[in-house]
Design a protein around this nucleic acid. Structure first.
Length: 406
DNA sequence: TCTGGGGTCCTAGGACCC
DNA sequence: TCTGGGGTCCTAGGACCC
C-alpha cells in the first residue's frame, strides 16, 4: 500500500516567531542571529529574503544587500516552546510523528488520514491550527515517502500545501535540479554534473554501473533518489544520542596555550554538565581546532573508562592540545564526548573518597546552574570569560539530551 | 567586519590478530 | 630470507542536514 507521509515545515521559523512576538517587526526585513561577535544569519524573514539575505551569510554581507535589515538575537526558549506546541498539534492526527528538527515534523498518516477526510484535509487542518494557536504559518508537503513529502513542502513554501502522489513523482522529478533533493549537497551535485547529470530525471535513468563506479555503495541509493525513492521511514522513537559536544568561534583568534585552556575548560564544563544531566557517560574525547584560515582538524583520545566529569574531560582535552604543534592562530575550539552509554546512577561505585567528592561537587554545581542559569557557578579560571551565547542550532530536537541546549 | 553551532553517517587507511 | 588473507577496531576527515 502506498504510504502517506506529511512533512510540516515552519516558514522562516525563528524570524516568524520574532515578528509574531513584536508587531513592530512585522512586514519588515529582519534576520535572527547568534549573540557572538562573529555570528551569521540563522534565519531571515521573507521580506529580507527578497533582498537576497540567506541563512549562513555574515551580518556584514546581509547588511550590504539589505541596509535596513533589522537584526534580532535569537531566543532559544521561545522557539523550543513553540516547537513543543507544534508537536502537540501534530499528535492530534497520528501518534506516528518524528520531530526531525526544531522547525520540521514528519507524520506517517497512512492509517489515520481517512479519519480527517484524506491527506489534504488533514494537512489543511494542521495549517489552520498552527496559524490560530501559534500565530505563524507553516507549509505542508504530502508524499509517498519522506523524500517526496519534504520536496513537496520545499516547493510549496511559504504558507503552502502540496501533495505529490506516487503517480506524479516522475513528472515532478524530470526537470528538478539535483540540489533540491534532500541528501544531495553541493559536492555530490558537482560530481554528478561532471558526469553530465544535472536533473533528478537524468539521475534516475543513469546506468547503475556508472554511479557505483563513482559513488560506491551510495550509487544505488542515489539512483533510487533520482526516481523519488527513499528507504527511510518516520522514526517514531528518537534514537540514543551518539555524541555530546560544544564548540565556539572565539571573539578573536588566539594562539597562546594559556588563552586556549580556559576556553577548553568552559567547553568541557558544558559538555560534562549536559552529559550528567541526561545520565550519559562517554569513552572518547574529541578536540576540534579551526585555524584562522578556516582549515579544521580533530584529534581524539579513547579513555579506559567512560566519564562525564568536567575535570576529566578537560584534562584529556588539554592532553590532546599539548600533543599538537599549532601551525597558526586558532579561530574555533570544540570539545565533544562520544562512545556514549547510559550511566546507571544506582550502580555508581567510587574508587576513592576524592572521586566521590568531585562527583558530589559536580552535582551541586549542576543544581545551582540549573536553577540560576548557566555560569552562576563555574570554575575560577573561567571567571572573566565572556558569557556563552546561547545560539540554538536548527538541528536541535525538543526531546532527549539535546533539550539541554535551551 | 568573510565564513555559527549542533549533530549523523560513511570511508579510507593503519594497527593488530589469527 | 622477504612474506597470504581475512576480520575487526580505531582514527581522521568529509559530506550532509537544520
Amino acid at each position: 500500500m502506498e504510504k502517506i507521509i506529511v512533512c510540516v515545515d515552519m516558514d522562516a521559523f525563528f524570524a516568524s516567531v520574532e515578528q509574531q512576538d513584536n508587531p513592530a517587526l512585522r512586514g519588515k526585513p529582519i534576520a535572527v542571529t547568534g549573540a557572538g561577535e562573529r555570528t551569521v544569519i540563522t534565519t531571515s524573514s521573507y521580506e529580507a529574503r527578497a533582498f537576497g539575505v540567506k541563512t549562513g551569510m555574515t551580518v556584514y554581507e546581509a547588511k550590504r544587500l539589505c541596509p535596513h535589515l533589522i537584526l534580532v538575537v535569537g531566543d532559544n526558549r521561545k522557539y523550543a516552546r513553540i516547537c513543543t506546541q507544534l508537536q502537540e498539534i501534530c499528535l492530534r492526527f497520528t501518534p506516528d510523528t518524528e520531530t526531525y528538527s526544531i522547525d520540521e515534523i514528519f507524520l506517517d498518516v497512512t492509517g489515520s488520514h481517512h479519519l480527517f477526510g484524506g491527506p489534504e484535509n488533514l494537512a489543511r487542518a494542521i495549517k489552520t491550527m498552527v496559524r490560530n494557536e501559534l500565530g505563524i504559518t507553516c507549509t505542508a508537503g504530502i508524499g509517498p515517502n519522506i523524500l517526496i513529502a519534504k520536496l513537496a513542502s520545499d516547493l510549496a513554501k511559504p504558507d503552502g500545501l502540496r501533495w505529490i502522489d506516487e503517480a506524479a513523482v516522475p513528472s515532478v522529478l524530470e526537470t528538478l535540479p539535483l540540489k533540491k533533493l534532500w541528501g544531495i549537497g553541493s559536492h555530490t551535485e558537482e560530481k554528478l554534473r561532471a558526469m553530465g547529470i544535472t536533473t533528478c530525471g537524468q539521475l534516475g535513468r543513469a546506468p547503475l554501473s556508472l554511479l557505483t563506479k563513482k559513488f560506491g555503495i551510495n550509487g544505488e541509493r542515489l539512483r533510487a533518489m533520482g526516481n523519488g525513492k527513499l528507504d527511510r521511514s518516520v522514526e517514531i522513537v528518537s534514537p540514543e544520542p551518539k555524541s555530546i559536544g560544544h564548540s565556539i568561534t572565539l571573539p578573536q583568534d588566539i594562539w597562546k596555550r594559556d588563552e586556549i585552556t580556559p576556553c577548553l575548560l568552559r567547553l568541557s564544563e558544558r559538555v560534562g554538565r549536559r552529559a550528567r544531566r541526561y545520565g550519559y557517560k562517554g569513552k572518547k574525547i574529541t578536540l576540534t581546532v579551526r585555524y584562522a584560515d578556516f582549515t579544521t582538524f580533530t584529534r581524539q583520545i579513547t579513555l579506559s573508562a567512560s566519564t562525564n566529569d568536567t575535570g576529566e574531560i578537560y584534562r584529556y582535552a588539554v592532553a590532546i592540545l599539548d600533543g599538537i604543534r599549532l601551525r597558526t592562530s586558532v579561530r574555533l575550539l570544540g570539545v565533544s564526548l562520544s562512545s556514549l552509554g547510559k550511566e546507571n546512577r544506582q550502580m555508581i561505585l567510587f574508587q576513592d573518597a576524592g572521586q566521590e567528592k568531585r562527583a558530589a561537587m559536580a552535582r551541586a554545581m549542576d543544581a545551582v546552574n540549573d536553577k540560576f542559569g548557566e555560569h552562576s557557578i563555574t570554575f575560577a579560571s573561567t571567571i572573566g570569560e565572556e558569557k556563552d551565547h546561547k545560539v540554538i542550532s536548527p538541528a536541535w530536537r525538543p526531546s532527549g539530551v539535546r533539550k539541554s541546549d535551551v
